[in-house]
Computed example of a mutant assay.
Amino acid sequence: MRPAVAVFTDTYLPTVNGVTYTIETWRDRWRARGGRMDVVYPKSGHVPGDREFPVFSLPFPFYDGFRIAGPLVPDTVRDVDLVHSHTPFGIGLGGYRLARRSEKPFVASFHTPTSEYANYLSDGLATVVSRAADRYENAYLGRADHVITPSPSARDRLLDRGVDTPVTVVSNGIDTDRFRPTDGPAFRERYDLSGTLVGYTGRHGFEKRLSDVITACEGLDVTVVFGGDGPARADLEAQAAESDVDVRFLGFLDREELPAFYTALDVFAHPSPVETEGLVALEAAACGTPVVAVDAGGLADTVRDGETGVHYPPGDIGAFRAAIGRALDDRSSLHETCLARRDAMSVEHAVDTLEAVYDGILDGANT
């Protein structure tokens, strides 16, 4: 019988991001295997479903869409076998509190470095907050019985920072039943897109360096297509207005549209150096679209140079432009190798690994 797990997270629906998506897909697969996975999250506009437990929260003033809450623990989740926190803040601390008071194993996921949120503060304050955030996160992860990271580079980052808790790499994984090649031409027609398309979808955050996509495409006969939204969008639109590059902003795309979006693209561009994995890169590759990605952070692992895409050195716009050209030239062969790696990208594969981690922790706790 699979263990009952309580998941604690400071970000959840209706906010759409990698953490939310991972929790939702892992929970669904865990339940499909006959297990129980409760979710404790900040109360917002999401109507709770089965075994979802919202707690009182307030908007976070510096980061749109993020909410803050205290370390609250609903009585309905106290009987679980294991606690898994996906974020280190108020609700994540609630998970830690439950685990220690009930003497249950405590697992912590490292999705996004806490210090990245400091980028939304003034420069002087950002430096102070970033350093404090790393120290806090180290202390938080150091109290876990086990830490899960989505990529080898994320694991190495923690080890370099001195975190000595056991760490296992568990890819977030994607739903390969959903993310597969589909009707790209219909998507192009619906949004009046034509020619060679280089695109990105996801949250438009300043730390993701999406402006580099526009700059790198200068001089190329391509159209840049952005899906999604976020705090950097206004700056991107202003840059596009001054650029010779044809840039289209589609706004937030329904998740059901994403496979067609990826399929419609000739290349997916991902310049973000701060990813711990980069789920959208996996989604694009699963749809057969090669990814041009910065050779940094999680994307150094997620994108396989010459197989699922092309890497370029951080900050080198000329190399970024050349990598896009190479991916376009080699698109046919890259498309085939992307499809050949679909099984390794699947969430089922990820949950197999997650289950092995849970079982090992519980076996150790019971000996």
Results as ranks from 00 to 15, higher is better:
residue 35 G to H: 10
residue 205 G to W: 00
residue 52 E to M: 15
residue 174 I to M: 13
residue 98 L to N: 01
residue 247 V to E: 04
residue 166 P to T: 08
residue 301 D to L: 03
residue 141 L to N: 09
residue 97 R to N: 07
residue 351 V to W: 08
residue 92 G to M: 02
residue 142 G to A: 02
residue 284 A to Y: 12
residue 290 P to N: 12
residue 347 V to K: 06
residue 253 L to A: 13
residue 239 Q to G: 07
residue 98 L to W: 03
residue 5 V to F: 00
residue 341 R to E: 14
residue 261 F to Y: 05
residue 256 E to R: 15
residue 347 V to A: 15
residue 294 V to S: 03
residue 96 Y to G: 11
residue 295 D to C: 13
residue 94 G to C: 00
residue 140 Y to T: 10
residue 173 G to I: 07
residue 294 V to P: 02
residue 55 V to H: 02
residue 124 G to D: 11
residue 306 G to Y: 06
residue 204 H to Y: 06
residue 326 R to I: 11
residue 306 G to T: 00
residue 331 R to W: 00
residue 7 V to F: 03
residue 310 V to T: 14
residue 277 E to W: 07
residue 149 T to L: 01
residue 306 G to Q: 02
residue 351 V to T: 06
residue 220 L to R: 10
residue 35 G to F: 00
residue 306 G to W: 00
residue 99 A to N: 01
residue 76 T to F: 00
residue 16 V to R: 15
residue 238 A to C: 00
residue 324 I to A: 05
residue 81 D to H: 02
residue 167 V to L: 07
residue 1 M to C: 10
residue 62 F to L: 10
residue 340 A to H: 04
residue 90 G to W: 07
residue 6 A to E: 03
residue 60 F to V: 13
residue 170 V to P: 14
residue 17 N to Y: 13
residue 200 Y to G: 10
residue 130 S to F: 04
residue 8 F to G: 13
residue 27 R to A: 04
residue 361 I to S: 10
residue 57 S to E: 07
residue 197 L to R: 13
residue 269 A to T: 08
residue 212 D to A: 07
residue 301 D to Q: 04
residue 13 L to P: 03
residue 6 A to D: 01
residue 319 A to S: 12
